[in-house]
Design a protein around this nucleic acid. Sequence first.
DNA 1: TTTCAGTCAATAAA
DNA 2: TTTATTGACTGAAA
Length: 633
Amino acid sequence: MDFCVFTAASPRSDGQKMMMFTSRDRDIQHLEEEVQRLQRLLQEVQERTANHIALLQQQLANKSQDIERLQDKLQSQQDYEKIKTELRTLRALSQTADDPHVVSVSSPPSDVSSVSVENDHVIQRELHHLLGKDEPLSESCPDISGLPVENRRSSSSSSSSSVSLHMFIKAENDSDGDVSCAVESDGFMDEDERTVSDILARPKPWRKLTSRGREPFLRMKHFLSDEHSIQTLRIIQERLRGIVPWVRPPEMSSDEVIRNILDQSRLELMDVDSRSLRGGDASEDVIRNILHQAEHEMQLHSHVTNETPRDTVKPKEVDYGTLNPSVQSPTDFVQSIIRKVKCEMDEDTHPSASPASLSSVNRSLRTLPVDSGPRAQADFQLVCVESCEVESLTGLDLQSLELDTGSITQRVKEALTLNNIGQRVFGEEVLGLTQSSVSELLSHPKPWTKLSLKGKENFIRMHRWLQDPHNVQRLTKIDQRARLKRDSQRTFDGHGFCLGDYTGAFEAVKRPRVVLSAQEKDALRAAYQLEPYPSQYTIERLASQLGLQTSTVSNWFYNYRSRIRRDGLTEPLQTRTVQSPASTSPVSSSLVPIKQEPSDPEMEDTQRHTRVSVAVQAVTSVKTEKVEDLLSF
DNA sequence: TTTCAGTCAATAAA
DNA sequence: TTTATTGACTGAAA
């Protein structure tokens, strides 16, 4: 009916309608085709993604397996390494007979006490074998030689290893005729075992000493008579503090160093999860670090010509693809891992570890759980790792290295300015530091001798960067990429999406930065002139008078002292706050570092007030009165 | 526990 | 936008 009406009302539109229908049919057909095409595309993408995920999972599983194998290998070798360490300790100790002071500085007591009883026999036999002394060690010692061999052994095994060790040392000493071999009734485990501090502070007369008690003095005598001993001791001490770079001792095999590296990688793995959360391929970072450091070790290995006999296990014809730890030495095994991992990874690996990755190594090591046992080992590893980093940075002997920090920063500044490279990019890519830190480094370079190992590392990086012929080219490229990224980000933000709304909420929660007014700074400077190292009381008074937090005041003093030292505005501040008996407040014995004042207390008191009033003249209005009042109490 | 070296983020200055 | 400054923090040493 409607149709009839329609047709009757518009007879000419039939054709048009038909055309419209046809056209729409075509559109629908096109759309259906498009939908089908998109569905196919989607399916392909899904398949590709699934394959990719499977591939990645497979790679991850492979790498996890590799790491597990490494861990198993380490586990199985723990005893072996321990015995080797003990052997080294014993060997060092055995040198006592000829050179006692060397032992006293190179073998920590903890090593001795840690020697296991079970290994004692083996170790001593091994030691005699190493020394070419096959005769029973107790022969020269009547107290022991009176016993049958079995008894001697059981006596040795049943006592603590330090006892048997000590007996051995005594026997060795006795053979030189220096010290009586007799085992006194008070025994080796001297009840009156004295500390170094005790011996030095309260030395007993020679005639009152037992032969055991005389031993430290004999060692000290040897120590003093050797012109190299103090130097040796100094180097060891500095090395323990991490001042002198750690250089692998000749008796440490590549296997042991590699074990350290692997231990470290294991620690890194513990850090993997947290880094995964921050984004990035954490497992790849771990592998890169293992590679970097293992390669470093391999280079060292290839350069070391005087390997110890223990390293006679030469890389044989090893199938590096098998990854079978049971048939390889640790060195070979790690090499095979490296080759395998290298094959799996893309060849885009940066030749040197980035500052960030190095920092992550340090971070992961520094965040180790505090544990009295492995703690020392972790510290040792940290020193090794840091030293290895520095070594790998320079390829030079750092012990004799001295860089001109002023010249380096000058050249870096020129290069950056000339090539329009920002401090930000330079800091992030070369030093692993922020722009502000770079600025500070470049504007106020410390002299090389006043830098810590960590501080030196920055200058070594800069030095190396200056030597790199492609340094500028690489940074310029990175800088351009960063600029492009920022520009595109800005464009994106400009199209309606703004992060500011979200970050603003966070900023509201953040504690505002304290900005000290000029008056407050003047007051603090005046206080500094009077008392560069203020007592807690003075800090509290200053804080309350100025309406600041005590932490702000003490931070200000730390920073001010530090920056004064840095800028060399004054002589180094050597005097510290001392409690003056005549005063209720602590008074510095040298109030103004620039000028040496008379030491007469009365004069000093008067002059202090004079100086304060002069100093606080710069401090205006109410603040002045407050500070003056404060400083003159 | 205090101090210091090194560092960062926020901010000021160029 | 880049660079310099500064208050605060961390880890290590004394």
